[in-house]
Design a protein around this nucleic acid. Structure first.
Length: 217
DNA sequence: GCCCAGGTGTTTC
DNA sequence: GAAACACATGGG
């Protein structure tokens, strides 16, 4: 069923071509900047970092935190995110950069990322998929809501369970997981706004047998 | 003015 | 563990 949802979303929206970013490190920075933040604002912050010469691990790690904070201001929570970016940059360097990380197994890399201050499950999985091409499903509020509505999730499941359940029935194809999360976000942006209810219309197409709407909120 | 956005850490029960 | 809260800007 998760395959079918994917297929329909892909037919409907086409390839999303995520992640908009230049290399692994930039993707990682973007993943932190977009936490609880619209991508548009994360993008602004990214541009300002670049213009300030701060879009490199060593530059961020060694810069005065006030400078980093000023650069990423448009993405909100800038003091919090500054600490996170500096921690992530130091970790990135300590792991031997993109090469070092590329040689690590997905499980090890995930555990390493989760130990970094400010990198939670969703951000870690964003990084695994979009910076290092690992076949990992990114669980977010949209995917939960959509799958719950389709009856594929009960609601209230833990992050890890959702992730494993979905990964276990899909081919471990990095490109597929890359598109899947992007398509769900696309669906969320175009249809699920305001969040709770209007998922329904797309879901009628996705799965005619799904429970009818109104249970929202 | 209020709610939300491609969350996470801390505190408290 | 789970719930409540802080973090903070920009758009609808």
């Amino acid at each position: 069923m998760f395959r079918e949802v994917y297929r329909r979303l892909y037919d409907c929206f086409g390839a999303q071509g995520w992640w908009p970013g230049e290399g692994p490190f930039e993707v990682m920075v973007g993943a932190v900047l977009t936490q609880n933040t619209a991508w548009r604002n994360a993008e602004r912050a990214l541009g300002r970092l670049r213009r300030a010469g701060l879009l490199e691990p060593r530059a961020i790690a060694e810069a005065d935190s006030a400078r980093v904070a000023a650069a990423i201001r448009p993405s909100g929570c800038f003091n919090v995110k500054t600490r996170r970016l500096q921690a992530l940059s130091r970790a990135y360097l300590s792991w031997g950069g993109r090469q070092g990380m590329a040689t690590m197994g997905t499980g090890d890399l995930r555990r390493a990322l989760l130990r970094v201050h400010g990198i939670g499950r969703e951000t870690a999985d964003d990084i695994l998929v979009y910076a290092f091409d690992r076949p990992v499903f990114v669980v977010d509020a949209y995917s939960r809501r959509i799958f719950e509505r389709l009856g594929l999730l009960e609601g209230g499941e833990r992050y890890e369970k959702v992730r494993r359940d979905i990964e276990s029935v899909l081919d471990p194809d990095p490109a597929l997981f890359n598109e899947y999360h992007a398509l769900i976000v696309q669906l969320g942006k175009t249809v699920c706004r305001p969040l709770p209810d209007c998922v329904a219309c797309v879901l009628r197409d996705l799965c005619p047998t799904a429970e009818s709407p109104a249970a929202g909120r």
